[in-house]
Computed example of a mutant assay.
Amino acid sequence: MNTPYYAVIFSSVLTEATEGYETMAEKMVALAQQQPGFIGLESARSEIGITVSYWKDLESIALWKQNWEHLQAQQQGRELWYAKYAVRIVRVEREYHFER
Rank of each mutant, 00 (worst) to 15 (best):
M1A: 14
M1I: 14
N2I: 13
Y5I: 06
A7W: 03
V8W: 01
I9F: 08
I9E: 01
I9W: 01
S12W: 03
V13P: 00
L14R: 08
L14A: 05
T15K: 06
E16H: 07
T18G: 04
E19D: 09
G20R: 00
G20T: 08
Y21W: 07
E22V: 02
T23G: 09
M24Y: 00
M28A: 11
V29A: 08
A30W: 03
A30M: 06
L31P: 01
A32D: 11
A32S: 14
Q34Y: 01
Q35A: 14
G37Y: 15
F38A: 14
I39T: 02
I39W: 02
G40M: 05
G40D: 14
E42T: 12
S43P: 02
A44N: 12
R45I: 06
R45S: 06
S46I: 08
I48C: 07
G49S: 11
G49A: 12
I50Y: 03
T51V: 15
V52N: 04
V52R: 06
V52P: 04
S53T: 11
Y54V: 05
K56Y: 02
L58V: 10
S60R: 01
I61K: 07
L63Q: 05
K65I: 11
N67A: 10
N67W: 07
N67I: 08
W68M: 01
W68D: 14
E69Q: 13
H70Q: 07
L71Q: 12
Q72F: 09
Q72A: 09
A73V: 04
Q74S: 10
Q74L: 06
Q75F: 14
Q75S: 13
Q76G: 10
Q76V: 05
G77N: 01
R78P: 03
E79V: 02
K84C: 11
V87D: 10
V87K: 12
R88W: 04
V90L: 13
V90A: 14
E93Y: 13
E93P: 02
R94V: 06
H97V: 09
E99C: 03
